[in-house]
Amino acid sequence: MVETPTRVRATGNPLVHAAGAVLRPVQDYHRLAWIWVRAFAQYPASLLLMSLAVTVSVLAQVGAVVIVFGHAGTLAGFTVYEGLMVFGLAASAFGVADMFMGAVERLGSHIRAGSFDAMLVRPVSPLVQLAADEFSPRRLGKVVPALVVLGIALANIDVEWTPGRVLLLPVMMLSGVLICGAIWVATACLQFFVANAREAANSLTYGGQALSEYPLAIYGREIVRSVTYVVPLAFISWQPALLVLDRPDPLGMPEALRHAGPVIAVLACTGAALLWRFGLRHYRSTGS
């Protein structure tokens, strides 16, 4: 029988150790996602159709934005292209987060099927396994058109592109993606305690996306406050848009908020991670 030790000894170098701690989950995610991409690629026609279906739904939303702004001319002081920029920021952030983290919303069904127990006995973070489960390239059907819309909008808005602005944009977009991912994980954690919390979670994930696709100024003050201070949706598209356009907040909220994106992102991710740990500690499994 083969008896080679499989253990990889941690080296004494703390830097190498830290790099390993960061890289391992990424490698594991990549491995798991890749096997699903391969599995889906065995049915290319189905994959293509599903991607197209997703793309069509995004385009329908874009159409809605154009029609709304087309009729109103400007909405809350936003032109069509500025509105499309808000839409593009929100849709791309949610799209990317959905692609990489969206599968966490199936936590409840994994718990019921017992497959979550299987994830827990593997030497890989269960969050990574959950997020990478059934990773499908069809979600690119959502991300690509959103980025195209964003690109078109950015090319047509009346903004002076200083190097500072150009650099800020990707930082803000990354923060948006992280905030969306954190919302996804945090809401999925509900399913540790409530079996069918997926729909409730979706009201925040998909509902949040729908909300942040329009300039928040069109909503009531109370809604804008709650998506700024309670669930930080405002930092996904609204505050970055104000920052790019260098426009005063129509609702008179502090201007410092528009620079807060990265900080909020880190806080949101930390909060989500703590919730996840808490949920895992109180996980009851099913059966015996």
Binding site: T6, V8, D28, R31, L32, I35, R38, R122
Partner: peptide
């Protein structure tokens, strides 16, 4: 495929 994925997750050469 399941088994080869297991190999990667357990880091077996």
């Amino acid at each position: 495929d399941s088994l080869s994925l297991t190999r990667h997750l357990y880091r077996v050469p």
